[in-house]
Simulated scan of single mutants.
Amino acid sequence: MGFVFSKSMNENMKIQQEFMLMNARLQLERQLVMQNDMRERQMAMQIAWSREVLKYFGIFFSITTVFLTAGAMKRKKPAFLFPIVPLSFILTYQYDLGYGTLLQRMKDEAEDILETEKNKLQLPKGMITFESLEKARREQSKFFTDK
Rank of each mutant, 00 (worst) to 15 (best):
D96E: 13
R138V: 13
R75D: 15
Y99I: 01
Q17N: 14
M22Y: 14
K142R: 08
E117T: 05
Y56K: 02
A136R: 12
I47E: 02
G126A: 04
D37M: 03
F60W: 03
E134G: 02
V4S: 08
R25H: 12
F19Q: 15
W49A: 02
R75T: 15
M20C: 12
T64G: 07
L87S: 10
R39I: 02
K14L: 14
P86T: 09
L68M: 12
T65I: 02
Y95F: 11
L114H: 09
L21V: 13
P78C: 01
T69G: 12
K76S: 14
L54V: 01
L81R: 04
K76H: 13
K107F: 04
N10K: 15
M34K: 01
F82K: 06
L97R: 12
S8C: 10
M38Y: 03
M127Q: 09
F19V: 07
K135M: 03
S8N: 13
Q46L: 05
Q140R: 11
E139S: 07
A79K: 04
G126F: 02
R51T: 04
L102D: 01
L103P: 01
G100N: 06
I47Y: 00
R41T: 05
A79H: 07
I59K: 06
V66S: 06
D96G: 00
M127F: 08
D146G: 00
S50E: 05
